[in-house]
Nucleic acid binder design. Structure first.
Length: 742
DNA sequence: CGGTTGTGTCATCAA
DNA sequence: AGTTGATGACACAAC
């Protein structure tokens, strides 16, 4: 029994590990097509692993444990994978093209090497630097990946150090393209796509090696930095080369001198005051709730505890809270103090700033509306058009209520997301070892082979089972069928039908001069002492499983009874065997049933009826035989049922794990996306600020941001329009997505 | 001694 | 209609 348990436990554990490991890399399709053909059927249709036949066959192996569960596990595993793919398809962020692009990038790590590797190099540097900087604050983080994640999150605000030399041409090209898109198109969608392209690159790298998550995550920051650098370079002295095409349409001339920071800041403030759409709010609620659930599930408890207990001054939260705060703050001087400079998009998130998260929060938070601290306040307005119509000066309801509502949620969500992601994804996905997986796979194959080996119907005895029972049963059942049948077939049928019917079973047992040889060898096939010694685990089995033996084996086991046994040992064995006998066996012996319970239970119906017809059995005997058969089969069925139940539970467990991992991945992707979006917004804001600040009216005076605003036209041109018009259009733009959602 | 676990058994349903 | 498998429920033994 203990060995059986151990075997079961270890097997399940190993297989669980295998599946979790495979879950990181394995492509379901390959399994479907090549390795496990039945799985296709299983996935496409009802699980064949749950069919009675298969289960039954598997169960008729040595013990059934460790073999069948694997097949079922695989079945459920792939079902889980399918479910997971569906979950992935949910696209909770409502991002068109997210899935396809992401998968493409995932599938082809080579293709993105040129574009992503340098970034990852940058990321490494930045992350390491950040790690050094923020080390004391993040002392609780233990694993490398966690650190990477955290650092990456820190990168949300902290841009990697300027290592522009590492940028490849592709990087610069990409940056350039994105830059132009930002400028030319001026629509939220482009920013959105860009952010996703960025995200895809990150995800790609991430998938390629979970251990490089820090690189991946920080890579984006590095890329953003690259863009930033590019922007800075272009916005420094001369007007950006990409700009004039659009700026040409501006109604007023654009002086080339730099603008006073005050004006820039006053412009930047409204820009950063992104309006939060109800959709975002709802999504964040959902995410928040899901995060709560995940917390409750205590998955990766230790990691979660560690991460959730991150110090309040953690750069992660600080970045999230600080960055949006400042823009919302409409005080020019304050804004200037926080942002430091409009041309420096990410100066706010420089490591120096991160070094003093608490100080920043203490200084900045009080200046900010109480609940307007969230990256969502800046991220929320995916519609850039709204971004370009700074509304705060008009003081419309949308301006105040809209962006502020989701802020507290956003802050919670972001922190929770970060924690969750780190604890979920890293704990589950890290440490995937292909070699180990292959070994496990081999193990699985061997096991499956075993199962196949023994997965024949009860009528055909498996070799493994034969070793355990049939070989010994050969002696016993042979004695039963040879000696017993020879003696019982005449005697039994005729002799004791009368008294056996009336006698109590036990009485009959004791009353009838029952040959010990019969009881010994007839029923328990493995009760030969020599055989028993070879099967020590059977000693722990309080019940016999002789019904597992195939009749053929029993039939083929017609060997003469071991007459050489000494009487003392015989008695001992008899006692032992009596204890080993099941109730039905006792009953059968009491009723002098002339064949083994194994036969009774495992023979096919035809053979069983044939066997019954051979003997002249009383009604009580026939009834008992049918009961024995029924109970025996039911016992097997119950065992199968229990194993199946256990497998189902285990599979559900694994499904939950997979879903949680997937959820963590999605959340991480969302963080990536939000980060990208925020960066893009900041960039757009700085550009807006710069362009607007360079505008002069006919008198050479700058336009007042309270009266005028820049607007991107659909054709990419930029117009200077009165703010009232801009607000109207912005409101119209906001209404659209709402209607679309309905 | 009570809770847990494993097992056998019965009743029942469905195929 | 009988057989068989699946499964919930229960009892019992072992731990």
């Amino acid at each position: 029994m203990l060995s059986l348990k151990k075997y079961l436990t270890e097997g399940l554990l190993q297989f669980t590990i295998l599946l979790s490991l495979i879950g990181v890399r394995v492509d379901v399709d390959t399994y479907l097509t090549s390795q496990l053909p039945p799985l296709r059927e299983i996935i496409l249709g009802p699980s064949s692993a749950y069919t009675q036949t298969q289960f039954h066959n598997l169960r008729n192996t040595l013990d059934g444990y460790g073999i069948h569960p694997k097949s079922i596990d695989l079945d459920n595993y792939f079902t889980a994978r399918r479910l997971l793919s569906q979950v992935r398809a949910l696209d909770r962020f409502q991002v068109p093209t997210t899935e396809v692009n992401a998968w493409l990038v995932h599938r082809d790590p080579e293709g993105s090497v040129s574009g992503s590797q340098p970034s990852s190099g940058l990321a490494l540097e930045s992350s390491s630097g950040l790690q050094d900087v923020t080390g004391p604050d993040n002392g609780v983080r233990e694993s490398e990946t966690e650190q990477g994640f955290s650092e990456d999150l820190e990168d949300l605000g902290a841009v990697a150090p300027p290592v522009s030399g590492d940028l490849t041409k592709e990087d610069i090209d990409l940056i350039d393209i994105l830059w132009r898109q930002d400028i030319d198109l001026g629509a939220g969608r482009e920013v959105f796509d860009y952010s996703h392209r960025q995200k895809e690159q990150d995800v790609d790298k991430e998938l390629r090696d979970g251990g490089e998550q820090a690189d991946t995550w920080a890579g984006e920051g590095a890329e953003a930095l690259a863009r930033d650098l590019l922007v800075d370079g272009e916005t420094g002295e001369s007007f950006p080369a990409q700009f004039p095409a659009n700026v040409a349409s501006i109604t007023e001339a654009v002086p080339s001198e730099s603008e006073p920071p005050a004006l820039q800041n006053s412009l930047l403030s409204p820009l950063l005051t992104g309006t939060e759409s109800p959709f975002d709010l709802e999504q964040q609620w959902q995410d928040l709730m899901s995060i709560m659930e995940m917390q409750a599930m205590e998955v990766n408890t230790s990691a979660s505890e560690i991460l959730y207990n991150a110090p309040p001054g953690d750069p992660l939260s600080t970045n999230y809270s600080l960055a949006p705060n400042t823009p919302i703050n409409q005080n020019v001087s304050l804004h200037q103090a926080s942002l430091g400079g409009c041309s420096q998009d990410f100066s706010l998130f420089s490591p120096e700033v991160e070094n003093l998260p608490v100080a920043n929060s203490s200084t900045l938070l009080p200046l900010v509306p109480s609940n307007s601290t969230s990256l969502n306040s800046t991220f929320s307005s995916t519609n850039l058009a709204g971004l370009f119509f700074p509304p705060q000066l008009n003081g419309t309801a949308n301006d105040t209520a809209g962006p502020e509502l989701p802020d507290p949620l956003g802050g919670l969500l972001d922190e929770a997301m970060l924690d969750e992601i780190s604890l979920m994804d890293l704990a589950i996905e890290e440490g995937f070892n292909p070699v180990e997986a292959s070994q496990l796979e081999e193990e699985f194959d061997s096991d499956s082979g075993l199962s196949l080996d023994s997965s024949h119907s009860p009528s055909s005895l498996s070799s493994s089972e034969g070793s355990s029972s049939s070989s010994s049963s050969s002696s016993s059942s042979s004695s039963a069928s040879s000696s017993a049948s020879s003696s019982f077939s005449e005697e039994g049928a005729v002799g004791y039908s009368s008294d056996s019917e009336t006698l109590d079973l036990e009485e009959a047992e004791g009353a009838v001069g029952y040959q010990p040889e019969y009881s010994k060898f007839c029923r328990m096939s493995y009760q030969d002492p020599s055989q028993l010694s070879c099967l020590p685990y059977l000693e722990h089995v309080g019940h016999n499983h002789t019904y597992n033996m195939a009749p053929s084996a029993l039939d083929s086991a017609d060997l003469p009874p071991p007459s050489t046994l000494k009487k003392g040992s015989k008695e001992k064995q008899a006692d032992f065997l009596d204890k080993q006998m099941s109730r039905d066996e006792h009953r059968a012996r009491a009723m002098k049933i002339p064949f083994t319970n194994d036969k009774i239970i495992n023979l096919p119906v035809e053979e069983f009826n044939e066997l019954l017809s051979k003997y002249q059995l009383s009604e009580a005997q026939l009834s008992l035989i049918r009961d024995i058969r029924r109970r025996g089969k039911n016992k097997m069925a119950a065992q199968n049922c229990r194993k199946r139940k256990l497998d189902t539970i285990l599979n559900l467990e694994r499904d939950v794990e997979d879903l949680q991992r997937d959820k963590a991945r999605l959340l991480r992707e969302k963080v990536e996306f939000l980060r990208s979006l925020r960066q893009m917004k900041q960039k757009v804001q700085s550009l807006y600020q710069e362009v607007f600040g360079r505008l002069r009216d006919e008198n050479g005076r700058p336009y007042s941001p309270s009266q005028y605003a820049l607007q991107y036209a659909g054709d990419g041109s930029v117009l200077l329009i009165p703010r009232t018009m801009a607000d109207q259009q912005a409101r119209r733009q906001e209404r659209k997505p709402k209607d679309r959602r309905k």
